[in-house]
Design a protein around this nucleic acid. Structure first.
Lengths: 161, 161
DNA sequence: AATGAAATGAGAGCGCG
DNA sequence: CGCGCTCTCATTTCATT
């Protein structure tokens, strides 16, 4: 039941399977097998192995935010005052715990965190900034970028070029 | 197979189902039914309806970039020179077509585009910038943020708060 | 050691009340 | 919407290379 060993060797079959699953993980194993020239059980074993090794981290449905009443996507860059390990870890934990924060990365460069936030209204975003940024003594400043168009959205990784 | 009508009404059952599927879409319909107090066929009908309405846009496997040889995630802000509709559309199409560009948003604010890029090496990123930014006459400047930690990654939408 | 073919079992899909 | 059926697909077994 998917828990163990980090880092396994992946061959061209595995990468081809991943490429299909990243696009549509409801593809029948028989169809995948035809596409990569393997039997269904072989495909199944490889998938299981990659799930156990956490190469496949999750299997998820992608939901359209606009159709569930969350039409606003916002990018935020956050700069902190103090970068001690404890304060950074605290910030990571806080940001990660917020449901509206869809993605959060700790980065180098002119900001310390960048995140993607999904909210129903700008009012909700404003309330969130009060809580998350103005209410945090270690946040020096933040810059907001409101998405007008989600040009490309996904988590697909470029494979085997 | 899943093509049609935009905007359908969603009730609390639908949102509860989506909340499960966004975390794990391999959850058996019977289990989902138990969780939301509905029969498995009812769950199935609702899922199909949401797929047809494109509320559920895709079902995908989430792959760990590091384990497939793409350990570097980078945020980029891009500012363009001219914002005519044609040039913006051209930029959207170009950025969206690049496999390394995992996400791209057209935004308001101090930048015009923000994107998430996944690459195997900084050398590969440098080559990509040459092609995508230095090689594009309409790109005024871009700022790079290299991710040191993927604090939170996903596409889950906050539902029914 | 990993594969493919055949058998088993669980789950999705559909019509019924 | 829930119940029960059918049928596809996932999963296991086993012989094979």
């Amino acid at each position: 039941m998917a828990q163990a060993s980090p880092s396994i060797a992946l061959d061209a079959f595995d990468l081809a399977i991943l490429n299909i699953l990243q696009r549509d993980n409801s593809t029948p194993q028989r169809v995948i097998g035809e596409a990569v020239n393997l039997s269904a059980p072989a495909v199944q074993r490889r998938i299981r192995r990659m799930e156990e090794a956490r190469v496949i981290q999750a299997n998820v449905a992608v939901v359209d935010p606009a159709q569930v009443g969350q039409p606003i996507t916002i990018f935020v860059e956050v700069e902190v005052i103090s970068e001690t390990a404890e304060l950074i870890d605290a910030a990571k934990r806080e940001f990660a715990s917020v449901p509206e924060v869809q993605q959060c990365y700790y980065v180098t460069g002119e900001a310390d965190f960048v995140m993607v936030i999904v909210v129903p209204t700008m009012t909700a975003y404003e309330a969130l900034t009060r809580r998350l940024f103005f209410g945090n003594n270690n946040v020096k400043r933040f810059r907001t970028f409101v998405a007008m168009d989600r040009v490309k959205v996904g988590l697909a990784v470029p494979l085997s070029d």
